[in-house]
Structures are given as C-alpha cells and as structure tokens.
Write a protein that binds this DNA or RNA. Structure first.
Lengths: 356, 356
DNA sequence: ATGCAAATTTATAACGATACAACTATGGTC
DNA sequence: GACCATAGTTGTATCGTTATAAATTTGCAT
C-alpha cells in the first residue's frame, strides 16, 4: 500500500461548526479491550473473559492480561457493559427534596456511599417530588432499567412501592417496615422502643402530663411511635395527649405556634417526647417564651440523629438513631441481594438502639 | 415457511442455572426505535432523526413518530445513547461525606435536583473520601467520561481541580471562587460581606471585643471571611481576636471546649461572629456554662443556612445563606454550559445576600 | 419527456462490551 | 496412527442508538 495512504488516513477535520473548544490536547485514546488485545496478541473475547476471571482462560494468560490492563489504566466502559448486559451499576436512592428533616438525607447518603466504596456501583439520587405519587420514581426506574437496585425510606403499612418492586422481583431495600404479608428486606429503627423509653424517662423525672408529636399517620413508624408512647403512659397511668394538627414534618414555626397556644390553655403538658431535633427546638422555643425551663418546669427527651444536640443548652436528654449506619447497612444488604438472591430471612434488620 | 418454525422460533429456555426469580411475568418487551419503526413502516434511522427533531424529516412524519412514541411509552435507552454519543446524561456532584456541616449537602442536592427536573439528566453523588487527594474524583470522572458535567464545592485559591477541568475543557461549576488568572464559572456567597456586616452589628450592639471562627485556611472563603471581619473591626477600632486551633469544620465538642477555656482567661471576647449553626450552638453552650447570656453579657451573629435557627432561644441574630438557591443556580448554569459553550462572563455569579 | 436540485428517506457502520458456538491445540487411550 | 475428551482460544452476532453517506422521491424548469 502506498505511503500516501497512511498520511491521509485520518479523515479531514470538519470546518463548519466552528469547533467548540480547543482540540490542542491530542490525548491518548481511551484504552478499550481492543487496546489490550492488540498489545497482548490475544482476541478481544479472550481479554474480556480473562478480565472477568473465567476459569477456562489459562492462569498465565489471565495474569498477563491483568498486568497489561493495569499498566495502561484500562477501565471498562460502563455504557457498553450496560448496553450488553443490562446491568447499570447504579443504586438509586429515592429522596423527597421537600423533607426538612435535618441531615436525614446527608446521613443516609454518607452511609450508602460508604457501602458502595470500592465497588463499581454509583449512587444516583432520584428525587420524589411531592406533587407526584410516590410510586412514580420507582415505576420509572423499573420501566427503564435505570438502576440495579433501589433504596427508599419512610414506608407505609401497605406500601405500594414495596408491592410493585416485589411483583417485578426488583432488588430493593427500604428504611422502615410494612404490614404486608410477604416478608421483604428492610432496615428499621425501633421507634416503639424509642417512644416507650422516652416516655418512661419523662415519667421517672416526675412529669405529670406527657405529649408527643407524631410523624404523619401514613407512615408505619408513626404507629410504632404512638404504640410505644401509649404503652408507657398506660403502664404508668400518667396523663398524656397527642399533638393534633401538626406532625414531625410540620414547619418548625407551626410547631412552635401550636405549643405556644397549648401552653396558654389549661392543664398543659410538662413532658415532651420529641421525635427529632427540629421539633425539640421548636417546643423548647415555645416553652422558653412561656418562661418554662427544661429540667425545672418541663422535661424533654429528644431523638438525636446528628452531633448537634450535644451542645444544646439547657441540656436535653437524647436517644440516638444512627442514620449513617442505617444507610451503610442498606447499601451492603442491597449489594448482596443484587449479586445473588439471598434467603429473605437474612435481609430483615431492626437496628438495635444505642444506649442513652 | 412451515408453521412449525414459528412455534419453535424462541430459543429453548436454559435449564441449568436454576433460573433465579419467577419469569411468570411475560412482560411486553421494552419498546425501542425498532418498535416504532415497525409500527410506522419507517426505517430506524428515520425514527431516530424524527424524534431528534431534525428539520430534514417531514413535519408530518415527525408528528406521526412522536405520536406513536408517546402511545407506546417509548423512552430512549440511555446506555445505547451514551455508548454511541459519549454523552452520559449525568451530572456529578462531588461531596465529602465527612463534612458535618448541617444540611449543607442536602440543600445543595435539593437545589441541583430542582435544576435537573424535567431534563434527561441524572444526579450522581461522587464521594470524595478525605483520605485521598481531592483531585481524585475529578480526574477519575474526566478519565472515564463518567459525567457530562461536574459540580464541587469549597474551592481553594489555586484549586487544582479547577485547573485540571479547564485544561480538559470539561464542563464544571464550583461553589466558591479561586484566585486563578483565567476566569471560570462559579457560584459564591459573599462571605466578606457576611463577616463585615456581622462584625458591624456586634459593634453596634456595644460589644467591646469580637472574635470569629474561620474555615480551614486552605479554602478561599476563609480569606474572604477574615478580610470582611478585619475590615470591620479596623474601621471601628474595636478589640478583636481570631480563634486559633479550631475551624468551622472542627467537631462541635472541640469548639465548645476551646471557648470554655478561653472564657476563663483574661479579657475574653463578648461578640461572636459564627459562620454556621453548629459553631454558634457550640459557642452558645460554652457561654451558657459560664453564665453568659446572649443579648446581655455576650452577643452573636450567626450565618443561617436552614430554618433551624428561627427557633433558637435566646434568639440570635442571623444572616441567611441560601444553599438550595446556590445549588439550583449551579445546576442551571452547568446545563447551559453543557448544551453549548457560553461566554465565560455570563457564568460567574455572586449570590446577593438576603437581607437580615 | 428530460434533467437537475431540493426534499425526504434509508442502508451501513460504528460505539465497547459480552454470550454463544465454533475452532485449535494437547495429551491420553486403544 | 486414529480417535476422543479436554483445555484454551477465537469469530460472529448482538445490545439500542446515532453519524455518515447514499439512495430515493418530488417538484419544477427546460
């Protein structure tokens, strides 16, 4: 073949389009299986199987391929793998951007991220916008194979997301339990125990009338919390009430106003079970404005999910829920479920409470 | 062709492998361009171009294709598009899982998520583990084309991530400014103005000695904050000091202990510029333990990034930084940059401060 | 009718990986 | 020496899309 051919091999650069950016950097092209195949004199197929660690490939070949791959910094093209195999190498975490639960999302993300570290998996945040049904992101992901596994939070007793995922045999794990007949993987915190212990502590401190702000009734853990609270107050025969019209998801200002009003009415509560930092601060603000001091006229037990409340003054008793740990656990369990089906029994998990 | 052929067309199901999951659900296969092509009698290429809105395709054809596509719920396969075009449809947000800045990540994520809503873009969280250099996730993403654009935070004056991204002409936007000669897109908050105004307010309240806890010196915004603070105290000729040995990133307990000690020493500060909620609570705790009351013996001005501090008691003056808005802005600017190069001048942005 | 440009549509070849079936050595058995 | 099982390797097709170039149809002046 004439030499001229070689010099003219590369197609002439297009002129129109005004070439965005400078193409000054003639980078070495991204290494592919083809590159390794040329370098080793093997076929692309062989290289692929060698890297996959197939036992049919001679050990020596596998090692040589691995060596070359490492040298040129080969990394498989995710898009190609995904197209061919259908595996996305993506874990989807569904979050509601509206939730104001402090650091809730961050803790979860950090936990899942830690679980994914060192694997080939990426974490995609799939928003669940509150103006669309909660099933929407889930069905979207299933329909379009957008992930290999799904994590979501705040389950409902008859959660339709869980139903759909189980119907489709789609790997998932959720934070919170359901009351569905079929068992399914989950990680949950023992909110019954939280509310029970919190109430008992308040009673032990001498409170005469307890109150609690519950999560929205749709969530399973609202029932757990209510049940734990009710059991404690009934066991002790102490006065109680449950805040109505507000939930743990209410705006902090609404919560404060609610208690501002309540504290002006007859027989106000003097012991507060607070399911989160925000609600605790809001109620404390209301008490403060009424001249009621924690540890004196009123008492608090708050659920703590960050380091923040270590510094609150006056000090408040807290019970810790480790959401990062929950995220880590969920990530690990989901990865295990994806790599191969595991007896469901193994995949349920109730986080033990950290003491005090 | 004999009928037998049809009945035996589908390859026999494999037996070994013990078939994971039930394949009871014979779903309608995922619609592809091929499906639409068959339905309309057009070629796959034509359908592709029609959906892309190419003007060479007859208007009537385009409409018919769009109609059919909508009917069967066609959505393009991301993996295939990505393989062919190199575009990932992914925006990468780099976060340090170690940062304890309250809700910082959440706010950013919510903002970016809002910007990406309705587009075909996904948000991937790329962790930057603090035991590896901060350039690592960036170079990894560039090398392996893992995203179409990168967002990261907390810039340094000579930020190597910015340098690398600019060298590679890779779309990005960062939260925070640099002191590099070449202009580049960013979104930043005016921390000079924050510290300046915070100090002025404290002085106006009658404080005689101000102090401030700065971010780690490596970050550009530490310089801005220091400069604003210094300018204010010099203009007013008031006493001041800068906390040493701790930063805004220090553990809340360390910050509290630092001030616990400092307040026992001679001529302690009585006005505190707090760059975040956590540091504010920590210092307030130290003051509380020394019997110093906000509004009486000491005064605070805190930067507020969540609704949390609306409920703190005693009330503290705050200056608001809207991180969700910053995330939104960054997402929008990055999307614009990706769809086509924009004059750099358009892509710099300093968030105006919300009043009070 | 004939030619020619413009308007549409189509065939073909990738992108980079893997599934599957086929091929080539190798050594042992009769 | 012919035969066969096994180990190791390779060729081909394919996943769903788009870039490129080629092919077809149409309209219109000649």
């Amino acid at each position: 073949m004439p030499l001229d051919d070689l010099t003219e091999r590369r197609p002439a650069r297009r002129i129109k389009g005004a070439g965005r950016g400078s193409d000054a950097s003639r980078q070495t092209p991204k290494p592919t299986l083809r590159t390794i195949a040329d370098l080793t004199g093997l076929a692309v197929t062989t290289v692929s199987r060698a890297l996959a660690g197939a036992p049919q490939i001679a050990l020596e070949t596998r090692q040589r391929v691995a060596q070359v791959a490492a040298e040129i910094g080969y990394l498989p093209d995710r898009a190609a793998q995904r197209l061919r195999t259908g595996r996305t190498h993506v874990i989807s975490l569904i979050l509601d951007p509206h939730e104001e639960i402090l650091g809730y999302a961050t803790s979860m993300i950090n936990g899942v991220t830690a679980a994914l570290r060192g694997t080939s998996y990426h974490l995609v945040i799939s928003p669940h916008f509150s103006d669309s049904p909660q099933i929407e992101p889930v069905s979207h992901i299933i329909r379009n194979r957008l992930a290999d596994g799904i994590i979501f939070t705040r389950t409902e007793p008859m959660d339709d997301r869980v139903k759909l995922l189980m119907q489709n045999d789609f790997p998932f794990i959720c934070h919170g339990r359901t009351e569905l007949a079929t068992p399914h993987p989950f990680v949950d915190y023992d909110n019954y125990d939280f509310a029970y212990r919190a109430a008992k502590k308040l009673i032990a401190s001498g409170c005469g009338k307890l109150t609690i702000v519950l999560p929205p009734e749709t969530f399973t853990f609202a029932h757990h919390m209510r049940h734990g609270f009710m059991t404690a107050v009934r066991e002790e025969g102490v006065g109680f009430e449950i805040a109505t019209g507000i939930t743990l998801d209410s705006k902090s200002d609404d919560i404060r106003r609610y208690f501002d009003k309540r504290l002006s009415q007859p027989s106000p509560p003097d012991g507060f079970v607070c399911g989160g930092e925000v609600v605790a601060m809001s109620i404390m603000a209301a008490c403060h404005d009424h001249g009621l001091l924690p540890g004196r006229e009123v008492d608090f037990v708050a659920k703590q999910t960050s380091g923040l409340f270590d510094q609150i003054r006056p000090r408040v008793e807290t019970i810790y829920e480790d959401l990062t740990e929950a995220g880590l656990l969920m990530g690990q369990m989901l990865l295990r479920r994806i790599s191969g089906p595991v007896p469901v029994g193994e995949l349920q998990h109730l986080q033990r409470l950290a003491e005090e």
